[in-house]
Design a protein around this nucleic acid. Structure first.
Lengths: 255, 255
DNA sequence: CATCTTCTCCTCATTTTTGAGGATGCGGAC
DNA sequence: GTCCGCATCCTCAAAAATGAGGAGAAGATG
């Protein structure tokens, strides 16, 4: 690739570069990059999906698209989407017409009942992957009254998409690390690993905080002997040799 | 700023953008960005310093500079460096001649005995800051037989420096978070917070692993009563009410 | 030298935890 | 219905940890 950039484009690219390192929330990053891309590529519509949703993230980020139409996509059209699976097979940014012929596409229910209703006509996608799977995508569209995307646009999207994918990968692995250190989640994982019952879970949650049998009993509203009874089976199931050992394995950031 | 970029420059900028998100080691990032900048700005020499050194990082990263001369900088010339303090006051990339007059500079020991020996003549610096202080810098030089840097070069360095600063800031705060979750360091911090003696530290290190008094005694090669004696003063100094409580506060990622 | 801290070890009493046996009632699965 | 897992409660005994009182030796500090 060897493309010159105008002053306007250079400015946008610098802004994108700063966003990539500065924004550390995947949803915000996708929104911001979307706005920059619409500007840079002179496009009209933007959408971005991630497949592994997390913390209240519905997965989709959209710009200039109709709410009710999007609801229809999420409930129906994503299941008869003829292009996204093909885009996902490309290792780089691709134009709609690189994955399906225009004639074929124009006859699909997906195009006529979904895309066309919002005015989407010319499209290109970038799908970011890591070793562990799909990270997220960038979907750029122009209306039918506009020019189609050129090879140069694909190159720009490709280069930005590469960095975008790395950034998403970083954010995801950061989130995973954080989740590994969240005590509640660690305790819950530990509990299911060892096949603990609901009540035994209640007990180790309090145990993990360093409480005594008597305190645990008070909090749970049962007698101390009941707590000891649960503890006995917890020791049996986990093979832990002492309360101290248990607390360490429940609280240690890395096991 | 409104600068057009050539195809070569665009490619380099995309590469820099990817480096910024992909490289998660501060030293490697500085080295890589240094090489890209030498290429992009057609410069001859690169140096980058960080002031808060960490994990075997000596602070300085250099390209095309003489080893023995650098040793002289670290031991002597950095203390009579007339320009770096002035560069650090600039909020953006600056040319040497923006912080000192050429005539003045050419008379300094710093220039004649240090820079000139390696052939450094035209220079520009970028110093990155965060709220907590200086993060790191980018120092770009050309030889005396070359053209001086133009306003356009400063603009490029400035834009890249902004993202570079954010990236360094992220890496540093990530490293700090990691350090907060390292059990050994947390135990050491906890110990000094509560004014524990060396032997008491040894005891809680083993205690934090969930060991029994007897085990601790064996490992330390003392009697159980000695261990209990140390534990007694640990309990007194820290105000902890039980061994379980102690283990939690020693192991909990966040206190 | 006297004083202080630290490390080492001790006793005695008490509380807490662990391990081993139980028993009862409840609700779902076969 | 019978069986099984679960939650609840019990006793008794042993092991571990806590709290309080020490004492002696080594070393640093005034």
């Amino acid at each position: 690739m060897l493309t010159t950039l105008s002053g306007r484009e250079t400015n946008l690219l610098f802004a994108i570069m700063e966003d990539m390192v500065a924004i550390r929330d995947a949803r915000k990053l996708r929104t911001q990059i979307g706005e920059r891309l619409l500007d840079l590529l002179e496009a009209d519509y933007f959408a971005s999906y991630v497949w592994t949703k997390s913390d209240g993230d519905t997965g989709g980020v959209y710009l200039n698209m109709d709410e009710s139409n999007l609801a229809a996509y999420e409930s129906h059209y994503q299941y008869c989407d003829p292009i996204t699976p093909r885009f996902r097979m490309c290792q780089r940014a691709a134009h709609v017409e690189q994955v399906i012929s225009r004639e074929q596409f124009d006859r699909t229910e997906f195009y006529n009942d979904f895309l066309a209703r919002d005015g989407l006509y010319h499209g290109m996608n970038y799908h970011a992957y890591s070793a562990s799977g799909h990270l997220g995508d960038l979907r750029i569209w122009r209306g039918g009254n506009r020019e189609t995307f050129q090879e140069r646009d694909l190159e720009l999207l490709d280069a930005i998409g590469a960095a975008f994918g790395k950034a998403l990968g970083n954010l995801r692995s950061d989130a995973e690390k954080l989740r590994d250190t969240d005590p509640r989640i660690r305790v819950a994982n530990w509990a299911s690993q060892h096949g603990l019952t609901a009540r035994e879970r209640d007990v180790i949650c309090l145990l993990a905080e360093g409480r005594r049998d008597r305190e645990i009993a008070t909090v749970l509203g049962v007698s101390v002997t009941t707590v000891r009874s649960h503890l006995k089976s917890i020791f049996q199931k986990s093979g832990a040799s002492s309360r101290a050992n248990l607390i360490v394995s429940l609280n240690a950031p890395v096991q």
